[in-house]
Amino acid sequence: MTLTRDSLLAQIKIILQEQFDIEPDDVNLDSRLREDLDIDSIDAVNLMIELKSLTSKKISLENFHQVKTMSDMLDAVLAFLQQDKA
């Protein structure tokens, strides 16, 4: 399955709703994970585990500490998948 930026955002919105009761309409590219969405580091690992089942790949984002916004997250996940493919 090839993930585009848009389809990944849509999938993440579904996960955020299911896992953390975050309304999809409240999530946009500029949403700050910690301040706006109240996602802590433990939640972030939950998200990673969900993404893993979505992409059938272990998403290992060692630089996740630098991810501040939803846009950063999409960049990081897509970069990881791209690099994994190469």
Binding site: S41, I42, A44, V45, M48, K58, S60, L61, E62, F64, H65
Partner: peptide
């Protein structure tokens, strides 16, 4: 239970 890996020297939680 869930246990997160923490690097003992940096005290930083790992995402893998």
């Amino acid at each position: 239970t869930a246990q997160a890996a923490v690097n003992a020297s940096t005290q930083q939680m790992q995402f893998a």
